[in-house]
Design a protein around this nucleic acid. Structure first.
Lengths: 397, 397
DNA sequence: AGGTATTAGTTTGATGGCTGGACTAAAACA
DNA sequence: TGTTTTAGTCCAGCCATCAAACTAATACCT
């Protein structure tokens, strides 16, 4: 059941529409927005005015030569000094912090190593919040406004409540996350889902609006993008493939989640390194040197990964797979067995094969996705930010 | 990119909201709608007036005793004489026609037997359209208005174009469907998807808003319902499980789709009957008589079905399975092996098991779902119907 | 019976966002 | 210098909603 709609909702919607249009084609003029959206020039001018005054949009000078004659247009873009988003990735063996502007450009990206396995969740969260506060302090000192913070967690995050239901690799169960920090709203989501969003929003595959993003880190996760939006599934747990059983025999290795034969135990970072007989950082060089053991290990992992992915691809009919995290680096060796497996197991592959692509954002994807998810809130409902800012200014005065 | 929004869109939305509210709780008053939706009594009265004048809503007399004192409310309900929907199921061995009113009540349901396998698609469509025209004629004679027709097809239907991409059991490839009939709009969708919608909208499991519907007919299909809405997947082909390979050995029987080892070849109606050594209609009596061969055959099918379903359940995180078509009748024997398989293969089953329920609409589900999908268009955007009706009346006068 | 309390629904005037067309601004071209 | 073209603003009007006052219809109380 949806809610009633009044005049302000219409402005809300149109304001978001205008902003979205500028984001999609930076440098567009008011007249161009009007033409593209179907709104009147009057309306566009009014909405742009509001967005300018809130520093969400910025005029980037008169466009020198649009086409021929006529009054030159004033180009509009997302303001580089507009509200930024801070993403905090709570990884298994590191923290990452990323600050992005409205257009998704990275302003800062920092990582802080540190093993979080089995540590007290409260201490890990303290550490993450502390790092976030430091980052916010720096931003404030530089005059960069921040409108929200988002956490990326390698586990099942209940979006509605902000509770981590389970994060086997961290050893977390039912850990509530903070919902605000220094007065800023804090959201949280699964690390792979956010990484998928990052590839969708600012990745190197423009036009790709339907894909399954597979994140191979210490754990294995996936994010499902359908029709240009993250598909959360019934309870926000779609695409959780790390603990799908791929080796039902008792011989399967025991997983941190307690079960046996999980995908992670054969395709997670540590399993692959072990099977390849390679330490951290040694894997890719060995693969490039055509080391038989390493190549074989990656091929085996690829097969099993393909089995698990085929299920998801079949179930949702998603037409492409994007490899992220470590998998992006392993793409040349991982792709052939994966594509074989997908071709054999995916129904629609018979008439339209499922391409396997390498992600373009590397290890930064989760934190970037988180940071952007914070700015997306502003982009999706700029009017809320505009009025919020106005109110804040009023109370301060 | 969405479209601009003006005053009429807001009325559109609120009109739909009011109608939805009445549909959700028939007999509600204007004041009740206002309270529940958050709209003003003024607005509600105005919108209700419009809906009454278009015969979408009807006043069902003053409510005798609402609670205590005060002026009695006038109860509102979906008009039983409002625009109906006609659903046409093009089955492999039959046609079914179903006429429903706005509330989803079945006015007529007819089946016409006839084997369509391998017949010329044009002839089958002619037959279906002829039957539909007859039904429309009867409705017109009875003074029943019909606002749309929907087709249910056992295959991959491209919703945007109205083309059947593939229907292996009919032997169809790339068959375009009509988009209008006697001036009425015709839509089309997959048979299992529409059956899933029927169970969602008027099935016997109220409150069930997330489930995987599995239709076991001659073919095997599935429809995915997420958060109270059908999930179509990337290209409208989500949940197509009939031709998932469950027997990768060469021993798998050849399927009508051309491949080997498809789920349908072991869990479709004919395969189960063959394995059970039972003719049409003999299966359930034998199961009730505890016939070992029949029970074993169903158990085996259930296992394999479970394997295929687990993939989908895992991928989307859907928390329940509803058995439809023949499977609903077989539920007592099918459920145990299915639940076993799901428990073993579904990740989330470890802490919250996936219940397997029997569908409640039987063989009527696809045609009913189709018929309702036609009325849903009116319910989702009543304003379009109201103004359309008004315009039609004006041009006639 | 008659008055009061209570709830349903309508009337009235105001608010606010969008529209269409007229208008000003700023450039190119002839 | 004047014309043409395009960008952006101004102004009157439209229309759906809202808030509040009002009428309508009943039950309860004395």
């Amino acid at each position: 059941m949806s809610s009633p709609v009044g005049q302000n909702d219409i402005r809300r919607h149109n304001s978001a529409l205008v902003l979205e249009t500028v984001a999609a084609s930076p440098g567009i003029s008011r007249a161009g927005i009007a033409e593209r959206t179907g709104l009147t020039k009057t309306t566009v001018s009014m909405l742009v005015e509001r967005l300018l005054s809130a520093d969400v949009l910025a005029e980037t000078g008169p466009q020198p030569r649009p086409s021929g004659r006529g009054r030159p247009a004033t180009a509009l873009s997302l303001s580089p000094t507009g509200p930024h988003g801070l993403g905090v990735e709570i990884g298994v063996d590191h923290l990452a912090l990323c600050l992005v502007d409205l257009a998704g450009r990275v302003r800062t990206y920092r990582t802080l190593p540190g093993d979080h396995r089995g540590e007290d969740p409260a201490r890990v969260l303290d550490r993450a919040c502390g790092a976030a506060r430091t980052e916010l302090g720096r931003a404030a000192a530089d005059g960069i406004p921040v409108s929200g913070v988002a956490l990326a967690v390698p586990g099942l995050v209940e979006a509605a409540t902000g509770v981590v239901r389970a994060a086997p690799n961290l050893g977390w169960r039912d850990v509530p996350l903070p919902d605000s920090l220094d007065g800023l709203p804090v959201s949280a989501a699964n690390e792979a889902d956010l990484a998928a969003c990052a590839e969708l929003w600012t990745g190197g595959h423009p036009g790709l609006r339907d894909f399954l993003y597979v994140s191979g880190e210490i754990g294995v996760g996936a994010g499902l993008v359908v029709d240009g939006a993250l598909f959360p599934g019934s309870h926000g747990f779609a695409g959780e493939i790390g603990h799908v059983c791929v080796d039902p025999t008792d011989a399967g290795a025991r997983c941190r989640c307690g079960a046996r034969g999980c995908l992670e135990t054969v395709a997670g970072r540590e399993a692959v390194q072990r099977a390849a007989g390679a330490g951290a950082g040694e894997l890719v060089p060995r693969l490039e040197a055509d080391d038989a053991r390493a190549v074989g290990a990656v091929r085996t992992s690829g097969r099993l990964l393909g089995t698990a992915l085929a299920s998801v691809v079949n179930a949702v009919g998603v037409p492409a797979v994007v490899l992220g995290g470590d998998y992006a680096l392993l793409e040349p060796w991982l792709r052939p067995p994966l594509e074989d497996e997908l071709a054999a197991r995916v129904l629609t592959a018979r008439w339209s094969p499922v391409p396997v692509l390498a992600g373009t954002l590397g290890r930064e994807a989760p934190a970037r996705g988180a940071a952007q998810s914070a700015t997306r809130a502003t982009l999706a409902d700029p009017e809320a930010y505009v009025t919020g800012r106005r109110d804040r200014a009023a109370t301060e005065a």
